[in-house]
């Protein structure tokens, strides 16, 4: 009976279980989540760059980027920082606890257009959350893409999310994994030190018109990273970014994520640099 209600009512969350949670850094955990209904768990389709609304009954609901790739169905992953009431409640839940989820929502990355192109993925801090999905989508479908660059910057080694996972990616021959920290307080950091923009010196030999760039990070990062891409002459509509806004519904009704007359939850959260120029107030 609940299934029927769910189909008619996009606001009723579907029951999902926390399968596992990992500590990534102090205040960030990775939650692996699966639909209680096995059939649903295996058929849930989404795109890299889409988000879902996670509900803790009695506390509330908030939007979260999907960090897993649709090329590995079954489990959904969310990389979540403990900052508000919903995340605080979520952090108290253990394995096998039930939560509610709605979605996926948003446009996601235009994968069909990106196929056949080189990819430069630039992430700062928690900006890894949506772009990890795109990264593994590209790696799982490696022959569909040209060169793949991953540029990731964190403040300090201890604050790098998925550090071991990404350090291991450096072994791959088919990916240029460039990691940096603003400050190396361990004196043991095996990679680059400096802002994420300083990694661009290692990006070489790309054909700008055959390249898609994807950016996600703290608001301050966009301007500088976009500047680097423009220096490479990557077309503005091929510079993509995943943006954050307050959201209460995810389906274009509550109004909070509005910019002019478009809704981040419907027309975003992935926007191009052309959109940014065209619409103001995006970044």
């Amino acid at each position: 009976m609940r299934e029927v209600v769910k189909e008619e009512n996009p606001f009723i969350p579907e029951p999902m279980r926390i399968v596992r949670r990992y500590n990534l850094i102090d205040d960030v955990k990775l939650f692996q989540v699966r639909a209680v209904d096995m059939e649903r768990a295996l058929t849930l389709r989404y795109l890299p760059g889409q988000f879902m609304m996670i509900s803790i009954a009695g506390v509330g609901e908030a939007p979260f980027s999907i960090s897993s790739t649709p090329s590995r169905p079954g489990l959904l992953e969310f990389c979540i920082r403990e900052v508000g009431s919903v995340t605080q409640a979520l952090f108290k839940l253990k394995e096998n606890a039930q939560i509610g989820i709605r979605g996926p929502y948003g446009n996601g990355f235009p994968i069909e257009k990106m196929v056949g192109h080189d990819l430069i993925i630039v992430m700062g801090g928690l900006g890894v959350a949506p772009l990890r999905s795109l990264l593994y989508y590209a790696l799982d479908n490696r022959n569909q893409f040209g060169k793949v660059y991953l540029l990731y910057g964190a403040k300090r080694p201890a604050e790098m999310l998925f550090r071991e996972e990404f350090l291991a990616l450096r072994e791959r021959d088919d990916l240029e994994c460039l990691l940096t920290v603003d400050q190396d307080d361990t004196r043991d950091w095996p990679c680059h030190t400096g802002l994420v923009t300083s990694l661009f010196q290692y990006v070489k030999g790309i054909d700008p018109h055959k390249t898609y760039a994807a950016i996600c990070g703290p608001p301050v990062m966009y301007k500088f990273v976009i500047g680097q891409f423009l220096k490479f002459n990557i077309p503005k509509h091929q510079i993509l970014m995943n943006l954050e806004r307050r959201m209460r519904c995810g389906v274009g009704k509550c109004g909070h994520c509005v910019i002019e007359y478009i809704y981040t939850c419907l027309d975003g959260p992935v926007f191009s640099y052309w959109d940014v120029i065209h619409m103001k107030e995006l970044i």
Binding site: G60, C254, G255
Partner: peptide, 10 residues
């Protein structure tokens, strides 16, 4: 004007 907020009440 249609904007709304959502709260849970226990």
């Amino acid at each position: 004007c249609n904007c709304y907020d959502v709260v849970d009440r226990l």
